[in-house]
Design a protein around this nucleic acid. Structure first.
Lengths: 354, 354
DNA sequence: TTGTATGCGTTATCAT
DNA sequence: ATGATAACGCATACAA
């Protein structure tokens, strides 16, 4: 046996045929009884089939069934990175709803790379998933998607997306706008904006909200205040460090992601600046840690679990041919905490700085 | 069309047959060319087939292929809760390795419930996944697993598990032991232990480490110091609150999970106690936020991403009939931070307490 | 009430 | 070098 010849032969599970033989009926009858189309079959026969199936521990092969019925009871979930708090809350919502409906979910990490997204989609379609949920994967340039063949899958998006498909979303621009307003109301005028990469749709949406609010409120519109970074802690850290080095003046930070906000917080500490005394910070997504940070982080909360649950329900509704709302917009909520307090924060000697 | 009749018929993707007709060959030839068994086929024919396939955007139906080949290129991942930092880091590791090998991964949340686990396993086996990775799902009582039929899947476990299968793990008892030693070395003698539920294997392992170290070091062995809670922030919070109410004396806390540790931290704050001045805290898993907490949390770090990546590689190796190490034990690392500092921590007025 | 036969889309075996 | 044909395991139209 060569190293490549997939080892031991896979033990064959019992089939409908085996059950049929054991029960002394045909496979048709077995299928009927076990799939609920047993109206016309006498109880006695049903019992024999059920018993035989149980003895043989028979379970229908879902590949064969899917091939025949054209439905796999499977949903594909496309996320940039499942190990990001935002996305795994969404993932949990998707899986809960799916599991309750007897569906399973395949997830793929794309790292916001079009190439990875493409190959995952190919594989998902090859597997004939019944539905595909895009979450946060929206790139600016997505010609690789617009002309795609979805193999008949029900496609739904969470958040901004180039595809014109049913979607769940929030008003990202308004959300950021409300954060900017909050900062302005607490006396800040120079807001450093730690954004994502410029070709991410989410960046564009949120940035639009930032710009509009800054203009509307007459705040400092210096383009140097906008830093294209990313959504990881290190990105926020580096963006702030560089901003400080560049000498641009700012009295507050708005980060488009809580991880980035926490990184920013750390960078400010390292620079000897006090939060919120010297600089206020607002984050995005309100991950569970935001409230536990020091100081607790003001953040915009989105109902991420509900995003996922709702998107999954949309897919199910499409599949069942049910009517449903094609665009569901969820509310956001600015959770104000100490990181944007007005009064000077009488902070201890910072343990991080030793 | 009734509401239940799954809406519009699914558009049928192009098949090998269509490609064959277009290229003027048989399906056999198509299959040969496109599956790499084209040694004996002249380039000219190959080109014709390839061109036809491209024009028709043909992709092999992986259900049919799987049915025929007995392999689905799919791995099932069983976790208690994907929205827990620990598990989604594992999940990312699994998916990265799987994706690189052309496999996809289906994940299921069990909430540590045997019933959910069972039904997920049934579905996974029905789908003929090639491999199954158990992560953190280990319950004490698992008779529902021992006699199971895995439908030929390669089974691997991450962490303690009743199943005698290839596994990746750490020495949980030793890890907790080292944390206890650290606390003892910094002068603590009454360690409150915030454990998981008593029927979780992970609880048993870690608790054994705690008990052994306490005995070995002659620390306070009061059984009241052990609180069976859970791994969520609220569990840690409530456990500490109840411990305080019960009057049991403790000068430190070891939580079997960082979320629980952070909850404990919050409860201590609310009770007006100082960390680490009055009570030291050690957590488990060293989630990214542990270092950002206030005070930064001492925690035991496990290479969770590697757990997942390694488990996935094990599955792949089993599938390919390759030799591999059946038990991989990873090292742990106690990251000492301010929450267990010896010197009284000169803390500011705590912003949380206002 | 039940069974036979066919097809779902591949891959593999055996011919030619 | 290539093509019929037979599985893979199930569900269903059509017979009986």
């Amino acid at each position: 046996m060569t190293a490549n010849s997939s080892g031991a032969r896979r033990p064959r599970a019992s089939t409908a045929k085996a059950v049929a033989e054991r029960a002394g009926v045909s496979v048709t009858t077995v299928s009927r009884v076990l799939s609920g189309h047993a109206d016309a079959i006498p109880q006695e026969t049903q019992d024999r089939v059920t018993a035989a199936a149980a003895e043989l521990r028979y379970r229908p092969n879902s590949l064969a069934r899917a091939l025949r019925k054209g439905s796999t009871q499977t949903i594909g979930l496309i996320v940039p990175d499942i190990s990001d708090t935002y996305f795994h809350q969404v993932a949990r919502g998707v899986e809960d709803v799916a599991q309750a409906a007897g569906y399973m979910v395949i997830f793929c990490n794309t790292d916001r790379l079009a190439a990875k997204e493409q190959s995952c989609l190919d594989l998902l379609c090859d597997k004939r998933v019944d539905g595909i949920i895009f979450c946060g994967g929206g790139l600016d340039e997505e010609k690789h998607l617009s002309s795609r063949d979805w193999a008949g899958a029900a496609v739904v998006a969470i958040g901004p997306h180039v595809l014109d498909v049913p979607a769940v979303r929030v008003d990202d621009a308004a959300a950021i706008g409300s954060a900017v307003e909050h900062l302005a109301a607490t006396g800040r005028r120079h807001i450093l904006c730690v954004a994502g990469q410029p070709d991410w749709l989410i960046t564009r949406q949120r940035l639009a909200g930032y710009r509009a609010a800054v203009r509307r409120l007459g705040l400092d519109g210096n383009p140097q205040l906008i830093r294209y970074a990313g959504f990881a802690s290190t990105h926020g850290h580096d963006a702030v460090t560089q901003a400080l080095a560049s000498g641009v003046v700012f009295d507050s930070v708005i980060a488009f992601d809580d991880y980035a906000a926490l990184g920013a917080l750390q960078a400010l500490r390292e620079a000897g600046l006090h939060v919120p005394g010297d600089v206020a910070i607002v984050g995005c997504d309100d991950i569970p840690f935001a409230a536990l940070a020091c100081p607790p982080l003001t953040s915009i909360r989105f109902p991420t679990y509900d995003f996922g649950a709702t998107a999954a329900r949309m897919v199910l509704d499409m599949l069942n041919g049910k009517e449903f709302q094609h665009v569901v917009e969820f509310p956001f909520e600015l959770n104000v905490r100490a990181s944007t307090a007005v009064t000077a924060h009488t902070c201890e000697r910072d343990p991080l700085r030793r």
